[in-house]
């Protein structure tokens, strides 16, 4: 068991070419010192960062992820970081569903001239993650369980309905939908929250089934939810053609994945 003080967080940073990556370079040119926990991947715009990739980083055991872009309103590609903001907000919500602290994902904005700000962000975040501990310490899950949940979360974020909602958030909340209605941020957040929960639950069930044919009770046990909740989801999944009843044992239908996604 590692002591808190000995724990060196393993952190991944996605930095955009025009602002945050440049600020990191400026910190270098100015010889500002900071701890070596953050490893940087360069992207052209922070909006390139697909939420599923952030989840992948956690699945692979990284303790923290940073996504840094230009200050809002100054994105080199005009509107990219507005999308980053909203996508990462959803990603944080999904982390909550998994049971992880959403603070393991840090989204922030740095301009190319702010070498010092970049360094303080890195220092601050490294300490924050150090305090949170290795990935999963805040849950009581075993590593395998955590990975399964994270995978379910990643698959949820890959689903069409969630991506569609996330992508249209800006338009719906700031502009109008086709009926000329505007959606309030609270209403949207509520809808998003519910949708994510549902999708996450579905994915967890699917993942838990593997190749086997399982009954509702068996699935409920693996996933740790009530049989009624599981049954509700099975109905949806069956309708969507993702599972089917392959046989009946006694009174219990046995469901199996159909192989679709």
């Amino acid at each position: 068991m590692t002591l808190q003080e000995d724990f060196e967080p393993d952190i991944l940073g996605f930095l955009c070419n025009w602002c945050s990556y440049a600020s990191a370079d400026l910190a270098g040119v100015s010889r500002m010192q900071y701890p070596p926990n953050v490893k940087i991947i360069r992207v052209m715009c922070s909006a390139r960062v697909d939420p599923t990739i952030v989840l992948e980083a956690f699945i692979q055991g990284l303790d923290g992820v940073m996504v840094l872009g230009c200050h809002l309103g100054t994105c080199h590609y005009m509107t990219g970081n507005y999308y980053t903001e909203r996508r990462m907000k959803t990603t944080k919500n999904v982390l909550k569903n998994v049971g992880l602290s959403p603070e393991r994902l840090r989204v922030d904005w740095v301009s190319a001239a702010e070498g010092e700000r970049f360094v303080s962000l890195v220092r601050e975040f490294t300490e924050k993650v150090r305090k949170l501990g290795p990935l999963g310490k805040e849950t009581d899950l075993e590593l395998e369980q955590l990975k399964t949940r994270l995978t379910a979360a990643k698959e949820a974020l890959a689903q069409q309905r969630i991506r569609w909602l996330v992508g249209r958030e800006r338009e719906l909340v700031e502009d109008k939908n086709v009926f000329g209605e505007k959606v309030s941020q609270e209403e949207f957040d509520q809808l998003m929250f519910q949708t994510i929960e549902k999708e996450f639950a579905k994915r967890r069930i699917l993942l838990s089934m593997g190749e086997d044919a399982l009954s509702v009770r068996e699935i409920a046990q693996i996933v740790g939810a009530s049989p009624r909740e599981v049954l509700r989801n099975m109905v949806f999944l069956e309708r969507a053609g993702l599972v089917s009843v392959v046989r009946i044992e006694g009174n219990s239908p046995k469901y199996q994945r159909t192989g679709g996604s």
């Binding site: 025009w18 602002c19 440049a22 200050h71 309103g73 100054t74 301009s111 190319a112 001239a113 702010e114």
Partner: peptide, 12 residues
């Protein structure tokens, strides 16, 4: 009037 960082938009 945007208060964006001068050197950031100049450097490219």
């Amino acid at each position: 009037p945007t208060n964006d960082c001068s050197i950031c938009i100049l450097a490219p």
